[in-house]
């Protein structure tokens, strides 16, 4: 026994999806996190809420709306069709878009927390040492917020690997395109193929445990390292 070819394909598809989504989220989420960490605008509350929505909404709700918006008659769907890209639902790209939105809070919040924890002082110090805003961002903010970025990347990746509802709504079940591990397990169970379901499910449990244990270990070590030695 072991993984079937279809299982292996699902695993690779899942890793590809999670990897793509994590990279995109780090790029998109960083400026959002920075803005949220620094702004005094009244928009901070509403924007934070929008970013956090996937935490509380059933994935089916998010999937449902995305299906409509990206569908042939939706705003995004019209645009993608006009650009000659067709429609996004039931494609890998559609899955990426949905996953980016769905995993957004898991990436934005750790980065935002880490950036807020830096405080005003290091930025002022950098300014007095002639570092302009961009320079300060790359040479001070990002290094100091590194633990937040590591946490964000791990959580973003792991959460994308673990999603199911959104995938089913927006991606369906197309081999090598949208059939990720969670969907594959669902298929096995539907087909009463419990042995295969066990293999994949067990692998998921181990993967998730290792990732989370590694993350907590990292955060714990980090905290000790950051403690100053007394004034």
């Amino acid at each position: 026994m072991g993984f079937t070819d279809a299982d292996i394909n699902a695993i690779f598809l899942t890793l590809k999806l999670a990897g793509t989504v994590t990279c995109l989220l780090l790029v998109i989420g960083t400026p959002i996190a920075w803005w949220l960490a620094r702004t005094h605008s009244w928009l901070k509350g509403p924007i934070s809420a929008v970013v956090a929505l996937p935490l509380v909404l059933p994935p089916t709700v998010l999937g449902f709306y995305l299906l409509i918006v990206m569908g042939p008659n939706g705003v995004v769907g019209q645009i993608t069709q006009a650009m000659g890209l067709g429609t996004l639902p039931f494609t890998f790209s559609g899955l990426v878009v949905a996953s980016v939105l769905y995993s957004m809070p898991f990436v934005v919040q750790p980065i935002q927390n880490a950036m807020e924890a830096i405080g005003e002082r290091p930025l002022e110090v950098a300014a007095t040492l002639r570092a302009g805003p961009w320079d300060t961002f790359f040479s001070v903010v990002i290094p100091l917020a590194k633990p937040g970025f590591v946490t964000a990347a791990i959580l973003g990746f792991a959460h994308t690997v673990g999603e199911f509802g959104v995938v089913l709504m927006i991606g369906g079940n197309i081999p090598n395109e949208t059939r990720v591990i969670s969907v594959q397990i669902y298929d096995h169970v539907e087909a009463l193929d419990y042995a295969q379901a066990h293999w994949l499910s067990g692998a998921m449990v181990i993967f998730s445990f290792v990732v989370l244990a590694g993350l907590y270990l990292f955060q714990h070590r980090r905290r000790i390292y950051l403690l100053p030695k007394g004034v």
Binding site: V125, T128, L129, R130, A131, V140, P143, K146, L226, V231
Partner: peptide, 29 residues
């Protein structure tokens, strides 16, 4: 803006960048 003023500023409490060694802090400047 402050980053264009040729000033040396020493803050009340430690203001060294924690992610850099003392030497790297000097090199930053």
């Amino acid at each position: 803006p402050p980053y264009k003023r040729p000033i040396g500023y020493v803050f009340q409490e430690s203001s060294l960048f924690p992610h850099l060694t003392a030497r790297e802090n000097l090199a930053f400047a």
